[in-house]
Design a protein around this nucleic acid. Sequence first.
DNA 1: TCCTGTTTTGAAGCCACAGATCTAT
DNA 2: GTATAGATCTGTGGCTTCAAAACAG
Length: 407
Amino acid sequence: MGYICDFCGNQPSTVYCRSDAACLCLSCDRNVHSANALSKRHSRTLLCERCNSQPAFVRCVEERVSLCQNCDLMGHGTSTSNSTHRRQTINCYSGCPSSAELSSIWSFFWQSPAGESTCEQELRQMSMTETSWCPTENAISQNDTGDAEVNRDYNVDRGSSWSGSSIPGFRSGPGLLDQPAGTTDTSLSELSCPQTKCPGVCEDDLYDDFNMDEIDLNLEKYEELFGVTLNHSEELFENDGIDSLFGSKDMSATDSYQGAVAAEGSSVGLVNAIQPACSNAASADSMMSNKTDSILCFPARQDHSSFSFSGLTGESSGGDYQDCGASSMLLMGEAPWCPPFEGPFSSATRSDAVMRYKEKKKTRKFEKRVRYASRKARADVRKRVKGRFVKAGDDYDYDPLNPTRSC
DNA sequence: TCCTGTTTTGAAGCCACAGATCTAT
DNA sequence: GTATAGATCTGTGGCTTCAAAACAG
C-alpha cells in the first residue's frame, strides 16, 4: 500500500478500495472493478494525499488536498491554525465511473486526459453501458455549490455499509465539517446514530452488512466475562433471544452486540473483547461493515483513557485502527460519537424490526469465501467416490462434468 | 416433571492434488 | 545475496459419520 498503484505498480495510486485494501490508479481501478458484478460493488474512495495509504474521507478546500481521518485530525485539529479550514466530505463510489464522472461526484476532482495512462485511455474507449456507479446509493446529494455532501439521514445509506463519509468513528457529521472549529453542534447525536435510540432500530443496516463468517470472536457467557447483566439486550430480545435475532451461527455478532451493551458496565472489557478480531488483518473491510456497529454504539463514557488496545502489534498504526473501524479519535481518548442507549424502543418498532430480521434471516446466505479460485475450479471438476476425491484414473461414482456417470 | 426413543441439525473428517510456502544446497 | 530443487503445507467440494439438540410420547 503506497504511492504506487498496487495493481500495475506503475502509475501513481489515486483511489483506495476498502474491499481489496488496495491503492489503485484510476485505470486499474476501472479495470479491476469492471471484472464482474461483485467487484463493481466494491466501495472506493480517493486516497489520502498526505499519507498515501489510507482512504480519504474529507477534502480541505483551502489546501486542496484529500485527507484521511488521521491526517485530517493532525492537520486540522482544534489546536492548529488550520482548524477553521473549510472541508468537504468525500463520498465513496462503486461501479466503473470515468474520471469525468468522478468529477461530477467530487467537484474538485479532475484529471486531464494527458495525465491518463495508456491503459486508461484505452479504457476510455470502452462502452460505459455496463457502468453502474451510483453515488446516490451512498446518499450523496449535490448542494448548490456542487459540493457533494452526505445526506444527513444515514439510513439512506443502506447497503453501502460504512463507506464514504459514513466512516465509523468519525465524530463530526457532514455539517460539522463545514463549520468553523469550536462551534457547538447540538445535533451531534443525531448525526452519530440517526434515528437510533437503540440497536434494534438500526438493525436493518446492521444485518444487511453482516458477514460474520470472517469474524472469530468466540466469547461466551458475558455475564462471567464482564461481570454484569445484559439489561438492555435481555429486555429487547427477551422473546426471540439474542441468538435468534442475530442468527445462532453468528455468535460473534451477538458477542459484539452483547459486549457493546455490557460495555456500559465494563467498557474496558468490551474493547479487549473486540480487539483480537480487530487486530486480525484478515479483513479490515469486514470489520468496517460488521463490528463497527456495535463498537461505535456503546454508551458514552468519560473514562475512555482506560481503553486498552494493548493486543495490537507494535506495527499497528493509527491507520490500522481506522481499518478496524475503531476511531483513532476514540483511541485518543475523545468521547465516542454515539449517544448512549435511551432505553427500549416501542414495542411496535421492535416487532417491526424483529419481523424484518426474520424475513432477512430466511433469505440470508452464509457464503463461503474461496481464497483460491484455481483450487476451487479444480475441486469442482475432480472426480469423487462418496464425496471423496479419487486418484486420477480410478473408478469413480460421481463426475462433476457428467453427473449421470455412476459406477 | 422426568425419562426414553426418535428426528433433526450441524460439525468434523476423509479423499487427491495443484499451488504456495519453507528449507537446504 | 541469489537461484534452484526438493519437501512440506494448504485449501478445495461432496459425502458420510457421529454427537448434540430438539421434539414427542
